[in-house]
Design a protein around this nucleic acid. Sequence first.
DNA 1: AAATTACGTCAATAGTACTGACATAATCTC
DNA 2: GAGATTATGTCAGTACTATTGACGTAATTT
Lengths: 177, 177
Amino acid sequence: MTDKSPAAGKPIRTAITSEDGIDFALIELFFFAYRDFTSDPDQILADYGFGRAHHRVLHFVNRRPGLTVAELLDVLKITKQSLARVLKQLIDTDHVVQLQGPRDRRQRELYPTAKGRALALALARPQSRRIRAALEDSGATERTLVERFLEAMVNPELRAQIDVGSAKMSGKSHGEH
Amino acid sequence: MTDKSPAAGKPIRTAITSEDGIDFALIELFFFAYRDFTSDPDQILADYGFGRAHHRVLHFVNRRPGLTVAELLDVLKITKQSLARVLKQLIDTDHVVQLQGPRDRRQRELYPTAKGRALALALARPQSRRIRAALEDSGATERTLVERFLEAMVNPELRAQIDVGSAKMSGKSHGEH
DNA sequence: AAATTACGTCAATAGTACTGACATAATCTC
DNA sequence: GAGATTATGTCAGTACTATTGACGTAATTT
């Protein structure tokens, strides 16, 4: 099982480089950066028996209170079944509450409770700290450039979902879609 | 099941903002950006019956040919058992070969085959394209700043694993750890 | 000779995701 | 009002990635 099996190809001993103009350095950095970025909240979540999926739901429910289930599914790009368990747990533990939609009574508007708001903040705090430190360490306080870069990394069709202004979630979230 | 259950907290109707100086905009952008960044290779991988784990292994085996299993585990920060299945599949499908370590015959040096190299390139191509486009779209071709920012996002202890120079993987990888 | 190391493997479990199907209530359309 | 559609919830089954713990084997080190 060690050496090559009969039909195995020959080993390539040279490292892949920036041949074909492929930016391996940034690809790798993005991987490492995201891994560590998510590791901070992961540790806190473990204390609650929650995972990353809970974090994401909690985040968006706090960012856009009154979100409907359908809107949340659209933002997260997951299926109803994937959301179900996670959302149920957040409701059962009193982090999120559902209210019947005022216009359409079939809809369930999702709101954080004080408990849910507190947890969302606790999860975001180390992430924000890491971002701030990284912005400072990377020389200029060029927040704008980093923001524009990350935004440009997102699929164009999906940029609409993003609230870049960091606090303009009127109309767009529980508006008529 | 709709409205509030007995002990449920009251809904908070205001969106979480940049209170406490938390950078929600960048937190969200990082999430969206990484999601779309990984979606490109995910589609290709599906054709092979592979997942993201296969991609990561393939990537690092191509970036540092001759990596041992232990080194790979250290870079990926996963357990031996998680790696086992994925690595076995890559070997069985002739994307990766194992050679007995020359100095230490217990070690298994991992090398890509031509097939494995080709797949690694195919997976990296759309990611690199997305990065290049994002750099261009974000105004200046400030690759350096983005690179420094991402690097600063990584835990300091782990920055050693990263080859920022994009092609200086001598000594560092299969050296004495 | 004994301890340690590198690797492989088995068993059991968890978290997140998927597809497909079906049920209910509310709204919209004709 | 009847029928279609929509929003949500739920059930069953599956897949992928990850975990911990235990054990075995071969090679190296002490």
